[in-house]
Design a binder for these strands. Sequence first.
DNA 1: TCATTACATCACCACTTGTTGATATGATGA
DNA 2: TCATCATATCAACAAGTGGTGATGTAATGA
Lengths: 117, 117
Amino acid sequence: MLIRANAQSIGLKAKLFRGFSDPSRLSILDALLAGPLTVTEIVEATGLSQPNASNHLGCLRDCGLVVSAQQGRYVTYHLSDPRVALLLNSADELLADVARGVYQCTRYDLVGEPERP
Amino acid sequence: MLIRANAQSIGLKAKLFRGFSDPSRLSILDALLAGPLTVTEIVEATGLSQPNASNHLGCLRDCGLVVSAQQGRYVTYHLSDPRVALLLNSADELLADVARGVYQCTRYDLVGEPERP
DNA sequence: TCATTACATCACCACTTGTTGATATGATGA
DNA sequence: TCATCATATCAACAAGTGGTGATGTAATGA
């Protein structure tokens, strides 16, 4: 790829957005909007399996979106920066206008879908 | 999954962010920040192959992030909403602070990487 | 009509990624 | 020390996803 602009910056940004691009991770971030939670609380809040939640938390932590802190045998996670919440809100606002388009985005959801007229 | 909050909303948001989560698509959006471009111009600007660019453009269009307009035998694409650019800027600002963390996010990039001390 | 240009689609491959179940690690308390 | 709880890691699998080359389609102009 011969990407025009700053390739490193673009790669970083893609990686950042990838942290937001999975429903399980978004549900974790959503749960953390209210405040810090332990892994068990996150598992209960999201319905994810414990290893799965732990895996996604590791990803979010590695990407700098959340921060972990060990307290006894508990590990609590919280958002690393208020702008993580702001970015989620910005997405909500954008969605308010393009929701119809995104809702119709069947590119990766349906197979054999008939062509649009 | 027993996702706590509005599952549909979370799914939509994940789909929206997925549009931003690939370097090729980000480079296309980055090129479109300056204004509308034809597919050929996008191919030249990004270095992507023509079918690949067309595929990503189709994804971006289906997701409502860009809009296409046919003009003769050319098809020009432009950002669907100024907030797409704003969201990209918000990500840049967030990256300014968490860049170090994202830079170290080797979870999906390296295999057999030794553990951090 | 025919060649050419611009773009989209298809078939296929390789790699990435999310999920699960099993298991390891590590802290706490009896 | 031993049992238990909280969390992380591992192996393995299935599905999603990006990439390429070949081909189709539609518009333009000679």
